[in-house]
Design a binder for these strands. Structure first.
Lengths: 335, 335
DNA sequence: TTGAAAGCGCTAACAG
DNA sequence: CTGTTAGCGCTTTCAA
């Protein structure tokens, strides 16, 4: 009934369990004769080693715990993909859990992952709470935080240079002839949002253009839509020609608002986003935006974790990846 | 250095490891005194039981293996969400792997999951190959297949009644005054696509309307776009007023084609989809479509698996969930 | 109510 | 090259 064990294989092959173990792992020389018998027995019994037992004795679970806020958020999915693909290259498997932003649940999940003996953790929670970060810091398993909005510099992470990226986009807009640019910033105290804002401001200042911002309470299309009217008022009132959203979700929501209210993009207003989430290239008009390498965030993160596991060498706390401007259809050249 | 074990707790508490185990699991009466000492020790050492060891002896991993074609496909994500949320309710964790449609990899993953002692498997591969299904059938771990395009009736699954749903949508379109309706079908031999087509045809026949179909080699917006021109020719040539796509992805691609080629939806052509994937309600104009309960597919699937695990009672091979028509903006009332 | 001991399936000295 | 043995960290008889 229950699956065969190494013992069954040994018995059938007429050797000891050590020999079986040795051929399975190629860990020590085994005579061709014995090897053949073992291999035969394995095939005959359709034997599959119990990884749990192996993990127990090896003290290696080959598991990476991934905690996401919500797997349905498309950019998180991209990250998970990166994690999974390179994880598999190194024979690591993914234990996945969603926290839905519930901090107590998140803490429970982390503890739970410890009990499952994960060898590393990547936390994708958008806005990890200090308590949680603290938990992670005060233990020995390597971890990386992949937070799109908040990130604590003391923590291991992989990001782009948000400020530089925002500067580039602002320059891009200016290059297209825009001087009155509105910056729409996510959340109130999102650290990363602040960075983007800084970049925008620096460039505007350098050009002696008047900078104008509005902060929106959220990051999704819902909020972009909700604030549409308010944003539009500013646009009209101040003669804004381009709106630079700190998040694609917000931009898409605003695009929806425009569609529903008969404002033409980019004729009536140019809009730029930040992130290049999946929908941005699918939507019409296609969103011009800053591309963040989500897949690579994940890929690099596991790579760092695995390196730490293998070599136990301290990893640099932050890795900065390149970003780029993706020009599509929502920004008009008004030169 | 390494984390404390049950032995350490026992030593510190001055009791045997059995006693520690008993208080952890409430498995047998323990004197209040001993319990207190154990609890103290646990707290003092910040002891976390090793689930691997426990699983080994209990022969229960509390793991459900989930194999998806690609986690970045949005409806799959929804399913995974359902799996995860109800899984957690029963204390099951998700071991996630993507197959990217590679059948050899898929088989490897399945075997691998067996070695990890998963207690159940849910396979979300869009078009599981017979070989793979065969593997699943010839072993004892419960499994469920969640395939959107192909599904083998002999296999455990949870779906909607595709034919009925397509009938409803066709009736809906007719109710809006459309008589010349084009059905755009995914793939060549997708069984589920056939079902939808049947539903459409039955209704058209019943009304004595001429049915017209085209089969497209794919299911995503890419193909919907690619076939846009061909579809449009048919529309013009045959005076079609509404196009019913067997998949939302296809419909979105076609909507993009229309946008890029200055065809107005729904003024020039009405379009309906099937699935209600995430983008369908975000896109403008919003897509009128058939809603499939993706989250519930996943939720019901695990529930069935867990029931099988717990009660070892045979589960009905297919569960049919309700679907519904979501009326939005892409279908015009031409009555 | 408790502890000793066996064992889950496997790996890794150790001796031969 | 091979078998014996001692665990990995935990649960669970079995006696006491």
């Amino acid at each position: 009934m229950s699956s065969p064990t190494i013992k069954d294989v040994a018995r059938l092959a007429g050797v000891s369990i050590s020999t079986v173990s040795r051929v399975m792992n190629d860990s020590k020389p085994v005579s061709p004769e014995a090897r053949r018998k073992v291999l035969d027995a394995i095939k005959k019994l359709d034997f599959k080693p119990n990884e749990l037992a192996r993990s127990l004795v090896m003290r290696r679970s080959n598991l990476i715990g991934v905690i996401v806020k919500d797997i349905a958020i498309s950019y998180m999915t991209e990250m998970v993909r990166g994690i999974e693909e390179v994880g598999r290259m190194y024979n690591y498997d993914i234990l996945l859990s969603s926290s839905y932003g519930d901090i107590e649940l998140e803490k429970k999940i982390i503890n739970f992952m410890f009990t499952k003996q994960v060898e590393g953790i990547v936390l994708i929670s958008e806005d990890a709470k200090p308590e949680v970060v603290y938990m992670l810091q005060n233990q020995t398993i390597p971890y990386i935080q992949l937070d799109k909005f908040y990130n604590f510099n003391e923590t291991y992470s992989v990001t782009i240079n948000y400020k530089e990226a925002a500067k580039e986009m602002t320059e891009f807009l200016i290059g297209k002839g825009h001087e009155k640019i509105l910056f729409v910033k996510e959340y109130k105290n999102a650290i990363i949002g602040q960075e983007k804002l800084k970049g925008y401001k620096e460039v505007m200042d350098a050009h002696n253009y008047f900078s104008r911002e509005i902060t929106v309470d959220g990051v999704t299309d819902k909020e972009g839509y909700k604030y549409g009217e308010e944003i539009w008022k500013i646009i009209e009132h101040e003669g804004i020609t381009a709106a630079f959203f700190s998040e694609d979700g917000l931009a898409i929501g605003f695009l929806n608002y425009c569609y529903d209210n008969n404002k033409k993009v980019p004729d009536d207003i140019s809009v730029a986003g930040f992130g290049d989430i999946k929908i941005s290239s699918l939507y019409r008009p296609r969103l011009t935006t800053v591309r963040e390498p989500y897949y690579d965030y994940g890929a690099v993160a596991v790579r760092k974790i695995i390196k730490k596991i293998k070599d136990n060498v301290e990893i640099d706390s932050a890795t900065i990846l390149p970003s780029s401007i993706i020009e599509r259809e929502t920004v008009k050249d008004i030169n």
